[in-house]
């Protein structure tokens, strides 16, 4: 009796479970480590590591992004927060969602694991989405939580500014310093080596849902942009502080935006020359 059993549904399921469990355990551990390392705080802006972005990024890029991102998000809550008894309530739930979306997008976006450029762009966009969504959620919370927010002189602006500064800080730290930089170093080392340990085939090229990924990015970007403008716009319109705010701090906002853009640009330029080669020989290495 010769029976050549192809990959069954059961098999696929268990590999997804493996990716989920792996991602959860590792991201959770990373979260614990960052939580135990004391942050240097200046006000609410912390010069600490919010989380190890690279762990999540590596896993979503190497494996099925959906399950890896889900695992990372669950791991973050379970290890870092729940078991430490440090559950931040509502903030946690929205944190799970934003982290999941950010990482999932990063995983879908990456096209070529041999290209540092591709990894860097996907990673930076993913973490940026996470941070923007998170900041937005915080603003909304304050907006709901403070009665007549718009009527209070100085408060809305300071909240928005603080969020902006905090998010950009976190983006630079979690997304770049302990995000894409370690990812770029570690992904080529792990690619092709870790997959057989789980009994999965190494990922080749883009994930099939890459189109969906772009769609998702675009839609979220539109959504985020719209809401952000909505909140700010509303605040600006209703608040009595519009003119001098723009005068005083309009430039400020521009600078923050430009700084982020500059960082992206520099990293892109730094990585570009090498990656061109990679693009020409996508199967090399």
């Amino acid at each position: 009796m010769q029976s050549n059993i192809g990959p069954t549904n059961q098999q696929g399921q268990s590999q997804k479970l493996m990716v989920f469990v792996l991602s959860m355990a590792l991201f959770g551990l990373g979260d614990l480590v960052t939580e135990l390392v004391p942050d240097i705080g200046i006000g609410s802006i912390e010069f600490g590591v919010p989380y190890f972005g690279f762990i999540g990024l590596i896993l979503v890029m190497l494996f099925n992004p959906l399950y890896a991102a889900l695992g990372a998000a669950v791991g973050e809550v379970v290890f870092g927060d729940l078991l430490m008894g440090d559950f931040g309530g509502l903030g946690e739930i929205e944190g799970v969602l934003t982290l999941f979306i950010g990482l999932y997008i990063a995983g879908l976006l990456v096209k070529n694991l041999n290209s540092k450029f591709s990894i860097a762009i996907a990673g930076m966009v993913g973490i940026a989405v996470e941070q923007v969504l998170g900041g937005l959620a915080d603003c909304i919370k304050v907006w709901v939580g403070v009665e007549d927010l718009e009527a209070i002189q100085g408060l809305p602006e300071s909240i928005v500014i603080l969020e902006l500064v905090e998010c950009s800080m976190e983006w630079v730290i979690a997304g770049v310093i302990v995000g894409i930089i370690p990812s770029i170093i570690l992904i080529p080392k792990l690619h092709g080596k870790i997959e057989p340990l789980l009994g999965v085939k190494p990922r080749q090229g883009a994930y099939s849902q890459v189109a969906a990924g772009y769609l998702l990015v675009v839609s979220i970007a539109v959504f985020v942009g719209a809401t952000l403008f909505g909140v700010i716009g509303e605040a600006i319109e209703i608040g009595a502080w519009e003119p001098d705010f723009i005068d005083q701090f309009g430039g400020w906002f521009v600078w923050v935006g430009m700084a982020i853009a500059a960082v992206v640009l520099i990293i892109t330029l730094l990585l570009r020359p090498k990656s061109k080669q990679d693009f020409e020989h996508p199967k090399a290495g």
């Binding site: 200046i42 006000g43 609410s44 802006i45 403070v146 009665e147 927010l149 209070i152 002189q153 100085g154 408060l155 602006e157 300071s158 909240i159 500014i161 603080l162 502080w241 001098d244 705010f245 701090f249």
Partner: peptide, 21 residues
């Protein structure tokens, strides 16, 4: 958190009302 919001708010022209909020 409290300190940084307060400082920034007063810097941006907030008053006691903002502090209470």
């Amino acid at each position: 958190n409290l300190i940084s919001i307060i400082v920034l708010t007063f810097f941006l022209g907030g008053d006691i009302e903002a502090f209470l909020a």
